[in-house]
Amino acid sequence: MNIIACVKQVPDTETLIKVKPDGSGIVEDGIKWVMNPYDEFGVEEALKLKEKLGGDVTIVSVGPARTMETIRTALAMGAEKGVHIDDPSLNGADAYTTAQALAAVIKTLPHDIIFCGQRAIDGDVGQVGSVLAELLGIPSVTLALKLEIAGTAVKAQKAIEGAMMTIETSLPCVITTQKGLNEPRYASLPGIMKAKKKPVDVKNAAAIGVAAAAKAKVAKTVPPPARAPGKILQGDDPALKAQELVKLLREEAKVI
């Protein structure tokens, strides 16, 4: 089985995000970079499939030089090899362009199944997996909570509003991962040592034949709207505070 897992490097969720004064983006100094948490589910599922059905796992990532660290993390978890697409023209590229770059690489690799996270927690756009599937002309199942593969038959479960849906499709396909799919493993120390010697191909945009042309761009980044300070209800009697709260919700907020 030829398994591919796409991983993106993102700021750690604890990172304090500061908007640049000119609104052109965020201040990147001091950010701790980590693997997108949803991609950990993708790498884990890829490794589980490999362990069950044989084959190998290739990690593909688009990003600047620091991205190599995240690729090595995935290799340390147990993937075989990586492709790192590093080109200034792709930094901050939109979802379509990023998917184009991933598709250009993946087209040249044998691929039975491709894992992406349901979304990256920086931009939170949640598009790349589906766009990639479209560009490769293969089906996609988003938000998978459970996955079964038998031969080329794929069965996946996802939660939709108020129901669980079971979807059937066939390989090759793209699966995007949702929390609940699995428990990602940690890289072991021997794994980390071995990862240093695993092959990673580094390519630029010209080498994969992608010319970035943004379809969407973040024109301006602004801090969140200020929120008026809230009201802390005073007093020692829980019952009185509860009554006051209900009154406020009814008469001031008008939400109950």
């Binding site: 927690i121 943004a214 379809k215 969407a216 761009k217 301006k220 980044t221 801090p223 969140p224």
Partner: peptide
């Protein structure tokens, strides 16, 4: 207009297509 970085800031997205 959309929240980014888990609502820590907002982005104004413009379109070229």
């Amino acid at each position: 207009v959309r929240p980014m970085y888990a609502g820590k800031c907002f982005g104004e997205v413009a379109f070229e297509a």
